[in-house]
Write a protein that binds this DNA or RNA. Structure first.
Lengths: 207, 207
DNA sequence: CCAAAAGTGTTCTGACTACACCCATGC
DNA sequence: GCATGGGTGTAGTCAGAACACTTTTGG
């Protein structure tokens, strides 16, 4: 039996967070765990991952990548578990509330204890995310179409867990062509108007 | 059903090469393909990959890493195929000759047409190998204990497919601590004696 | 003496780091 | 007028790239 499991990340409130569901069935009843499940008949791995992601967040067309394949997951009835990781903008996600298992965002730094192998999978996924942030444009999936450079910098800082210099950050993302100005100024709140940016590509790409 | 498949690389004669077997059974009888097969009962994925590698080359304790998990492999009876890639020193490998499927090294640049999905898998594996060569010590698995810097440079050049500068190469591998001098000089052939080097670690590590 | 491979230093450039002040806005 | 966040330039350091000649050896 083959299962997929999806590590769905978002950045919200300045914190990198992951989507967990509370298990209503055995094993690990009452524990938090990653969303996942067995393949439906005739479905490909990727299709199953996309379906799970859409089930839990309502979004598709976001960054989604295969992560690693595990075996020997304790007390699971899958012999292999293919993990994926995804990045979503939490403002766009609509978590399901009517369900018996309540999906919820959990700040990565303060995770509860999880069922199955899930800590290992999340650790591996966040390591990969941090690595890819440095040399790809993956962040495109964590922000709306238009955003300020401060928004983007906040995303980087939340994921990497460290403050960055505003000027160096700007030079980097603009210089490498990750983002470009949209030319639209904006008036907002008690602030100076800010230039808005957009990603030059909303496909995953290596810089 | 779950299968593993192993992309086994070596560098020999200045060429990056991959181990293929000629299939004696259907499907793809008579085609070349990567070594692989279904999991034996109770075996983990990694154990199956290690077994396949040892079956075909007689070596173990080499670099071996999970690569990617594929599904929908045409005309295979596995629903998912977990691929691994390995690096071996061809001087140490002892390919099996008595078998009906004859394993043989094939130069990567001039591969025959392969069965299953195997071109894709090999492409992906060699991309990953090139990437890892740049920031890890993976090459340790492609050379004997002691070697000259020219040997090592030859391995890099074969994999990356481009000539490098001797002085820059030396600075880089010594400076980053990939290798160190063993202090043993050597007399060989019609050449000046050469310093021998060894890897500072024979475990995979990030530089 | 010739072929083959080993060894060696300097200069330039581009990327990354560190660092501090002024401006426009809404309240 | 003040708090909030937006915007800007320079100097230093380091890694990587380019580049050519001399030495030892065996045949």
């Amino acid at each position: 039996m083959t299962a997929v499991v999806v590590v769905i990340f978002t950045v919200s409130g300045g914190e990198l967070s992951v989507l967990l569901i509370e298990r209503s069935g055995d094993p690990y009843r009452g524990s938090w765990a990653l969303p996942g499940g067995l393949l439906h008949g005739g479905e490909s791995l990727k299709e199953a991952a996309v379906r799970k992601l859409a089930d839990e967040t309502g979004v598709s067309d976001v960054f989604l990548e295969q992560l690693y394949t595990f075996d020997c997951i304790p007390s699971s009835d899958a012999t292999v578990v293919v993990s994926y990781f995804a990045l979503v903008d939490s403002r766009r996600a609509r978590l399901r509330t009517e369900l018996e298992w309540q999906p919820a965002w959990h700040v990565l730094r303060t995770l509860p204890h999880l069922g199955f192998d899930n800590e290992r999978i999340i650790d591996y996924a966040s390591e990969r995310l941090r690595a890819k942030l440095e040399y790809t444009n993956v962040a495109y999936s964590l922000l709306p179409e238009r955003f300020t450079l401060s928004d983007l910098q906040g995303v980087y800082e939340a994921i990497l867990g460290e403050a960055m210099d505003k000027r160096n950050f700007r030079r980097r993302v603009v210089g490498l062509g990750v983002v470009r100005e949209t030319g639209q100024l904006q008036k907002r709140g008690a602030h100076r108007p800010a230039m808005l940016y957009e990603f030059t590509s909303r496909e995953p790409m290596v810089l």
